[in-house]
Design a protein around this nucleic acid. Sequence first.
DNA 1: AGGTGTTTGTTCAATCTTTTTACTTAGTGG
DNA 2: CCACTAAGTAAAAAGATTGAACAAACACCT
Lengths: 400, 400
Amino acid sequence: MSTSFQQHKTGDLHFLKRLNRSAILELVRRTPGLTRADIASQAQLTKATVGAGVQSLLKQGWLSEGELQKSSGGRPGRSLYLNERHYAMLGAEVGVHGLRLVACTLSGQRLASHHEPLVPTTPEATAELLAGLLRQLMAAPKVADRHCLGVGVALPGPVAPGQPLLRLAPNLGWRDVRFLDLLRPHLPRQDGVWLMDNEANSAAFGELYFRTGTIPDSLVYVSAGTGIGSGMVEGTHPPLISRGLQGLAGEIGHTVLQPGGLYCHCGNRGCAETLVSGWSLRAALGIAEDESLIDALLPRLQDEGVQRTLRRAGEALGTLLLNLHHTQNPSEIVLGGSLVQLGAPLLDPALAYFKANQNRLLGTTQQVPLRVIEDATFIAARGAAAQVLASVIHGPSDLL
Amino acid sequence: MSTSFQQHKTGDLHFLKRLNRSAILELVRRTPGLTRADIASQAQLTKATVGAGVQSLLKQGWLSEGELQKSSGGRPGRSLYLNERHYAMLGAEVGVHGLRLVACTLSGQRLASHHEPLVPTTPEATAELLAGLLRQLMAAPKVADRHCLGVGVALPGPVAPGQPLLRLAPNLGWRDVRFLDLLRPHLPRQDGVWLMDNEANSAAFGELYFRTGTIPDSLVYVSAGTGIGSGMVEGTHPPLISRGLQGLAGEIGHTVLQPGGLYCHCGNRGCAETLVSGWSLRAALGIAEDESLIDALLPRLQDEGVQRTLRRAGEALGTLLLNLHHTQNPSEIVLGGSLVQLGAPLLDPALAYFKANQNRLLGTTQQVPLRVIEDATFIAARGAAAQVLASVIHGPSDLL
DNA sequence: AGGTGTTTGTTCAATCTTTTTACTTAGTGG
DNA sequence: CCACTAAGTAAAAAGATTGAACAAACACCT
């Protein structure tokens, strides 16, 4: 399901209390170690309100008290932190070549994780396998004694906004799969939040949501793997994921970069994926489906043919990044996915093109932060867990 | 200034009351003729709360009571409408070839408007001229007796988010202009809301905000004129404009459609604007700056050379629309700007390409609504007025 | 050591808004 | 003409934030 927090058009007093408590929790999440007095000034609430809110959050296991801060002439304040021991969230990613699962704390710390290689199969079989692995994860020592807030699943394709329906997963051969419905029967506990989303959306959300300190206004995660997709989160309290009417937002792999170019599996011509993607690299370099693309290429990175192919793909990736810059202009871009492991031969041309052209219009020197994630294995799964947490904090749950 | 409604992290009781009253006003705005009982059920408020809220909104001139509805077995409810006589908003667009001004009611009805042709000049001279025209507009009979909520100005270039600064207007030759600061000294009344935004953003906002009935979740306005830009609004209560880190969101004219293509005025190669834009059409067909592009082309639409040029430009426009579809997937696309007046020779190839390819990925038959605005003259100016209204309803103003 | 000043956090009555409940109003239909 | 239904209003009740007073904890000065 898409984590759509209904915009509370109206509110009663209970809603107001919830709002303020979730604001307190968010502040401590973003800035660990805050005191009640800090919260009061930053949230523009009175000491009394903050005191009451903090007390109930402590009692329910959301916050924990830390050490006394250094005095600045008066009574020192007591630091507040997320209670990392009471709750846990589960996140999973169904990838084209495997399942990835994580359990993590409120701050996003990994408690346990698992990577299960897998060749694509039916949704039903995948769901059953994933359910078994989730049960194992829940039984892990660090996880079992925590209260589980819910499960989030990230999937490699567009998800219908507002309902838990995977519209399409081209690289799995799936279409119109209600994955959560397949998962539920195989799991004992049905309580808590259950949601599913596109993997790039989940990853983007997690990268923004688990950050502390000052956080960017918006963030785009570009996932370069078998296909190419992106996810965008915007705003705060809570960050909102752009999904679009049909869940097609972020399908940048099918933006046209070369009108009249090569045919794409979608039937159109010149899609970005025909220039840069796992499957186009396989096609260009003759690497079979049953072989790992990365494993096949890493030893051959010095080959001139491989270098040339990767450079061309990298230039297309750079164009894609620049087009995102001029379409959504995110405050930060994060680049992940399996292709990142190919390193400089692919990434250098991309980053160089982006850097060279991002400031042409305005003529400024301000650089948009672009971060490359070396090991993106659990990023999407962790992001799905983040969505679970956000859903509890900002959604209709009665746990808070 | 960008209409950024600070996300109210927290709230007191006064905030709650405001929230509920603005929700009532929004409901009546979207569905004129609602009764108090309808509002209560739709907004999940009690009859008493709605009654009190409506009463104060009536007293302050936001709402007016209409006729009695037909009884359905009990006491008939009284219809509520926006009070179209008490308030007014002003909107203006600074275009490359002229100034456009409107004054409108709460529902977006035009009370008065003015179009002033103009050749590009300095920001200072433009501001002084615009101020004079605004004063005239405020003195118009239908406008003068209303309370003016504020002024919004739409500008042809990226506007810095969070501050009233036009970063760049390439076709005016302006850079880093604080236009509101230039405008203020020439206007007598400084109260109310003052804001400025990119013209495509304003247009998109207005198209969504003034709509009644069921409204789309998101909307993209594509403005095809001397340059090509787009604006996106998303969500409701209130609709949010995506501006991006530097105000570059929607600069789709500078997305690359043809790597290694023609040089663009931005210095990069293959930008969409090199394929479809007022300036690229002038260049391709040899039409001078001092001549109206539309007036020059309309008589020559049957020329084979013109047809071919427009068809190619239209195909690029279609690609641009498809790329938007696969990047943001808006619930509705609105196409405006002066180039729309060129009609079928330009638009048919664009719409055909978009229609032929928009469903390739999902394989559905659902069509994204795409509306072409025949006369987009006052769309952006009216949108800026809409932003003023939204800023009063959802912002920190104390008028509501 | 002890007093003073400063800041943190809590307690409690006051205030304000929504809700609940009862009641009035206004029309339909037998 | 009278029951019946639904819309809207006016009271008391419930619940949340606020403001002021108070207690706690530490630094600094004498």
